[in-house]
Every structure is written in C-alpha cells, then in structure tokens.
Nucleic acid binder design. Structure first.
Length: 519
RNA sequence: GCCCCCAUCGUCUAGUGGCCUAGGACAUCGGAUUCUCAGUCCGAAAACCGGGGUUCGACUCCCCGUGGGGGUACCA
C-alpha cells in the first residue's frame, strides 16, 4: 500500500508552531515510506480573503522545506485540494448517508436540544438526543415543515456496542457507541460540516495514515462511523501529543500570548526578535508576530532546519542522546512507534540552542548570504553590494563569531562599523569613560594608534598594554574605554578586531571624539 | 456532568521486569578561561504523582485514587 498522509490547515493567516509539528510528522512519515504528502486547505468556514489568509501558511511550509506532493500549486489526481470547492462531494455523501439510514433529518431547534442537554446534565446522566424531532419519513418531515421548522442532517449513531481504534501512537482506544452524539453533518442551509468533509476528503484523496493532534482523538468515533457507513476503508490513525504552552501541559494557542510572555525564556526570545524586526523596519504586532508563529522566526533570521529539528524532538526521539539530525537522517529514522504519547511543552530557549548549533556550522559566505538582506533592509548598506563592502562585512561576521545566533543579529554587531556618525550609549559612556584619568590614557593610546605599523592586533595590543603599564593602571581601565569610544557600546567582538576592521582613520576619529566625553 | 487520553529532573526526553546508586540535553547555580558580550571547559543541584496488587525482583505489568489535558457545537 502506498503511504499517503495529509496536513489540512485552515487559512487563518498564521502558521502556528503546533501546526508545523503536525505537518512535519506527516511529511516525515510519508518520506520515510516513499509516499506522498498532501496539503489540503480546510476553508469550509467563511474566509474573508482566502489569498491573504493562505499565503503565510504556504510560504511558511515552503520555507521550512515541508513541501507537498499534491495540493495548492501542485495539482495531482485527487483535487481539488480546497474544501470550499468540494461542497458537492460532501452533499452527495450526506445524501447517501440519509438514503442508507445512517443519518436523519432533524427538526429540533437549538434551544430544544439545549434544554435536553441541560436536563440530562442536571440529572447526572450522559446526554443522548431523544430524536424527538427526527423525521424518518416524508409525512413527519412535512408536518415539521408546516410548523416552520428547518432541518439539519444528523448522524444516526449506533447506541450499543463499542468501537476499538488501533492508534499507532496510543495503542488500542475503546469508545462506547452509546456515549456518542448524533452529530450534525449538514447545516440547515445545506452546507456541510468538518467531520463529514474530512472523512470524504481523506477517502477521495486516498489518505492511508491520518496523523493529527490528540485533540482529534475523541472525534474519531463519529468519523469512523461516517466512513464505515459510506463503505470506506478506515485509514490508520495516529494521534500525536499536543504541543503545550511553555512550562505547562495546556495546548499552545496564539491567543494567550500575554500569559506566555510571563515566561522568562519566552519573553527573552520574543524581545530579541522584536528588536531585530524593528531594525529592519517591520512594524510587528504581537498578535501576528511572536514565537508561536512561524513568520517570526523567518523574519528574524532563524534557519528553517533548526525549527524542523527542534520541533521533531517535541514528541519524538531517536534514542537517549541524539539531538541533531540532517534531513536525510531524520527521514531514515523517523517512526510513529517512537512518538511519545504525553504532551510536550514548547521551549523557545531550547529551540534557540538548536538554532545556535546550526548557525555555527555555517561558513562565513553562507552567513553573509543570510545576513546581507538584514543589512540592506535596515539601510546600513545599499544595493548592489560592492566587493569592498562584501569583504568588509565578511570581516565583521568573522570577528563576531558565535555571537551571531540568528541572521538578524548581524545588525547588533555590524551597525557601529557601518554608520558614519557613531551614537554612543549614554550608560556605556557613564560607565567606561567618566572615570578620572581616562582622557589621559586615551590620549596616549591615540598616539600609538596613529603610528602603529602595521595596523594589526599584534601591534595594537602591546601598545595598549604599554600605555596602561606606564600609567600604572589596569588593562580594563583603558580597554573598556576604547571599546565604548569606537563602538558606542559595551558589548561586541574582540576590541583589536574592532579597531582593525574599522581602520586607522575611523578609529582615531572616534577616539578623539570620545576625549571630549571623558570625565 | 459524561467520554477519551496522559503521568520520569523546572522543560524536552532515555528507560519495554534485574544492566537504574534512573542516563542525556536545555534551563539554573558554582568554578576556570577571556578586554566586554558570546563561547568553551570543569563541576553541582535537580525526577520515577500516591496507594494497593502481580513477581524472587518493579520506573517498567494490573487495579484504584489523585493530578493534568483534550473532547463533548448548525467550530476546525
């Protein structure tokens, strides 16, 4: 049997991190078995602007390398891949269910249903619809209609026996039919509901394995009932553990950002991203730009594979020590058997470490490719990028080393090299330049800088040390002052690297300017 | 309320009855290195939810409890 899996997002305008994990596992499983991964769009809801809502999801998946064999832009033999274009299929299925007695037209009003539900609850027994307003024949239907009632189509669920599902993650799961509701599959206006649509689509698209989040486990019986009533063969099910909030077991949601921001690690990653976004002129709004949404990572300059690799570890493991995988290693080793069954909370700090790991493996040239767009977007350099500028940025990247965690970090370390007029951080000035005697030290160092030959770390370091020694001061007294003078801040690459990259003229100019700020 | 699922360090996890004095990673805290930051190295602290069984022997199997989560819509 050919393996066919699917991911069926609804176009909400965001690609959620939990959704990506589901998509990834489906993709991995399909690739592992030489099968196909299908992307289907769950747009049964009224979507105001499908294109706008869909684009971030498609782009996000592509960016992550989760490519689909069939779906939007990759027409296969099982289309259309938009649920909104498949309404006739669902209607036909509903009719079939009606014709075979697996469903019935129901004329109860929502209020009547609600009353029954409440009554059952008050009596402490499980709710089961009385089918009081069910119309199993034309006469009854006509009578209800003359009363002005409108009908929905409900499933006529079995009321005895049980269903056993062989879930690939959880093993056997048993449900009693008498606890299942007569769910609505078609609204009074004729439109069909999710559960019907999913079952029909999975069948039409020949989905062999339904791999989805645990939140759908309880929905499985009604879907199984629909499938069996329609004469479909049941797909294999695998219910993945939920991706939970940082430090909790509750399902991760993009609606509860305020809460997550109270988590220190989450807040830190968020703030870091916000800073970069602002520097490249994005005006991030926290409900669309935050660590729960994939765009956040892309815009800030994370590596897609770092996200994939991290997300894979959320609910799956190879063994007791392997954490980093290449794409092909992962595909080779992935299996549903090793998927965990308990919820996994999303840890942005661990993602950060995975990102760091992959970033440090890149060559300077590769880093440049990723980082140059940030420099141009922020206006620090202009296009086309000259060869001189490219060399210059190469030097900055090398000097910055593993301080660059994400591509956007280049802005933190390159800015002071690239601006004409340096802005000094007042706090840094207060801390490092205000100390009495600093001006004198700087002045002496300036004299060395002016003549150091060649203008290298090997000449600058002894020069600085000799100034300090002569004045009977500590290295730190001068080195920190020089750093603030030439970079405007207290953090950055090695100081001698900074001076050399900046060049003699600029260094001297900045050192002289700083003299005036000394206490 | 009812149904279903889950339960190992704060977090992700390894563990499929003896290899467990419970292993790894992130985070945390020390210490070393360095001009800052980042890093690196070394070290520390940190867990089997509780109670009953089964067994010569339970983190591992069974039952009950407790806790957490999901579902229960003319949402997906």
């Amino acid at each position: 049997m050919t393996v066919r899996t699917r991911f069926a997002p609804s176009p909400t305008g965001f690609l959620h991190i939990g959704g990506v994990r589901t998509a990834l596992f489906n993709w991995l499983f399909a690739k592992r078995h030489g099968g196909a991964f299908i992307l289907r769009i769950d747009d049964t809801d009224n979507i105001r602007n499908l294109e706008t809502a869909l684009e971030p999801i498609l782009e996000g998946l592509q960016w992550l390398g989760i490519t689909w064999d069939e779906g939007p832009g990759a027409e296969g033999d099982h289309g259309p891949y938009f649920q909104s274009q498949r309404a006739d299929r669902y209607a036909a299925a509903a009719k079939c269910l009606l014709d075979t007695g697996s469903a019935y037209r129901d004329f109860a009003t929502p209020q009547e249903l609600d009353a029954e539900r409440k009554e059952a609850q008050a009596a402490g027994r499980p709710f089961l619809y009385s089918r009081r307003f069910a119309a199993f024949d034309k006469e009854t239907a006509a009578r209800f209609e003359t009363e002005g009632r409108r009908a929905v189509v409900r499933l006529k669920m079995p009321r005895e026996g049980q269903l056993v599902i062989d879930d690939k993650v959880r093993g056997e799961v048993t449900f009693a039919w008498e606890r299942e509701q007569d769910h609505v599959i078609q609204r009074a206006d004729g439109s069909c509901l999710y559960h019907l649509a999913t079952v029909v689509d999975d069948h039409d698209m020949e989905i062999s394995h339904v791999i989805r989040a645990e939140e759908h486990l309880s929905n499985t019986p009604r879907q199984a009932f629909i499938a069996e009533s329609l004469g479909y063969k049941l797909p294999t099910f695998a219910h993945l553990p939920l991706v939970a909030e940082p430090g909790s077991r509750t399902k991760l949601s993009k609606r509860k950002l305020d809460k997550y921001l109270k988590n220190r690690d989450f807040a830190q990653v968020n703030e870091h991203g916000m800073r970069i976004a602002q520097q490249i002129g994005l005006e991030p709004e926290s409900d669309t730009f935050n660590p729960v949404i994939v765009d956040f990572y892309r815009d800030v300059g994370y590596l897609p594979w770092a996200i994939d690799n991290y997300l894979t570890l959320l609910g799956w493991s190879l063994d007791d020590h392997t954490e980093f995988f290449t794409r092909s290693q992962l595909i080779e080793n992935f299996s549903l058997e090793r998927v965990n069954s308990s919820p996994a909370s999303f840890d942005p700090k661990k993602l950060w470490t995975v990102q760091d790991h992959y970033m440090q493996q890149l060559s300077t040239a590769e880093k440049f490719e990723l980082m140059a767009p940030f420099l141009t977007k922020s206006g620090l350099i202009s296009e086309p990028i000259s060869n001189e500028m490219k060399d210059f940025v190469f030097q900055i990247i090398e000097a910055s080393g593993d301080r660059l965690k994400v591509a956007g970090d280049i802005l933190t370390y390159a800015t002071f090299f690239l601006v004409e007029k340096l802005t000094l951080d007042p706090a840094a000035v207060a801390k490092r330049l205000s100390k009495p005697g600093t001006a004198a030290l700087l002045q002496q160092f300036i004299e060395h800088v002016a003549v150091a030959e060649p203008f290298h770390a090997e000449t600058l370091e002894p020069a600085l040390k000799s100034v300090v020694e002569t004045a009977n001061k500590k290295v730190g007294d001068l080195i920190h002052a020089v750093r603030v003078a030439v970079t405007g801040t207290t953090v950055g690459p090695g100081l001698y690297d900074c001076l050399v990259i900046l060049g003699r003229e600029k260094s001297l100019e900045r050192l002289r300017n700083a003299l005036e700020l000394c206490g």
